[in-house]
Design a protein around this nucleic acid. Structure first.
Lengths: 193, 193
DNA sequence: TTCATTTCTTGCCATTTGCTAAGTGTACCG
DNA sequence: CGGTACACTTAGCAAATGGCAAGAAATGAA
């Protein structure tokens, strides 16, 4: 696997130069994740800052009743890691599982910190990844409060159609904050329109 | 106002030394916010990284129908700023309003970046603030999905009782993702128990 | 292929929550 | 003092969503 896409990913941020992007990318190691296997399991400390080059990953947590709740979906071109576990070196409450065969590149916490020290521009890049994740969660939170389940479904369908091609409906349902039964009904009503 | 609490706040993170904490604190300027006035108004770029020494602040956004939705509450000892607007230099969709008279300390975006350059340890501190905010939002999101309105009310009452002493019920209601009518009903049922 | 498992849909009913509007109490202002 | 505004509660009804269970469809394994 060539690291072209990884280099391009850094460059697209407009926060690092071509040369820096190449140098940063050279510290990443390739990684494959077979369908259904895990990038991270709950109870472990997240130690991989993973760029997903292709494939699809679902993050989920288990609530008190043991129900599996989808916390996020990741498609190619995104950075995948559990922020709190990774930076605080604490055990993760979430699982990250490959929904299809995945390929990508990773560095460890130690390597990331070394990069932050040696490559000045990369710090801003790292921050922008954090800020982006935070912002999209805020938007999602606001939509949970102000929109109906059908509106949230509609938005997700339009903005992230790939999720519907990859993930099981029950997993999309918990991501939307509803039961699979409700999602099924919403889809039924929706196709009528 | 003495900057003792500000210095202590940095030290408590265990990410900066006493000396560094003093130096960092010395770049902050004091700021008062009178009850009902704004730290940030939507449409403007957030340029203040604000440490709230005492007082209480509510953040809110307006949805499509013009309803005011509380996005967060901040009590003393917290850093108050809109992450996306501040770091991306984009206009804010949120308002930050003092609920009571507030006092605190702030630095601008430029000053913060200068500090990041000159004070190496402060970067980790800055990141920890971001990570903390992100994590608590994730927890809140999970509770929105898995818990009933009454459970969320109960949790908020136990973990942040000061909110109920400071904020109007309708503002707490939208923070919990329900209407003020529902919150009133929940409180009624709740006191029966 | 066949069988078993999982996923998805559907129907019925209960529960939660929202919407609207009215009523009460309180604070503030002239 | 009266009046207005605002916050909160309450009631009745409607809409959204959940829980449960049964059945259909898809998937995967032997």
């Amino acid at each position: 696997m060539s690291s072209q896409k990884l280099i391009q990913f850094f460059k697209n941020s407009n926060l690092v130069s071509q040369k820096a992007a190449e140098e940063i990318a050279s510290t990443f190691s390739p990684k494959e994740i077979k369908k259904n296997s895990f990038l991270l399991k709950e109870g472990r400390i997240c130690d991989e800052y993973f760029f997903l080059e292709n494939g699809f990953i679902r993050a989920f947590a288990n609530d008190i009743d043991g129900n599996d709740v989808t916390t996020n979906f990741y498609s190619s071109g995104q950075v995948v890691f559990e922020v709190s576990s990774f930076f605080n070196r604490t055990v993760s409450k979430e699982n990250f599982q490959a929904i299809v065969d995945c390929e990508g590149w990773y560095i460890t916490y130690e390597q990331l910190n070394n990069l932050f020290h040696s490559m000045h521009d990369f710090r801003d890049f790292g921050r922008s990844i954090l800020v982006k994740g935070f912002s999209s969660l805020k938007i999602r939170m606001l939509s949970m409060i102000t929109e109906t389940a059908e509106q949230r479904y509609d938005t997700l369908l339009k903005t992230n159609p790939e999720i519907f091609q990859q993930a099981a409906l029950k997993h999309i349902a918990s991501y939307l904050g509803i039961t699979d039964t409700s999602l099924s009904r919403i889809r039924k009503e929706y196709t009528k329109k």
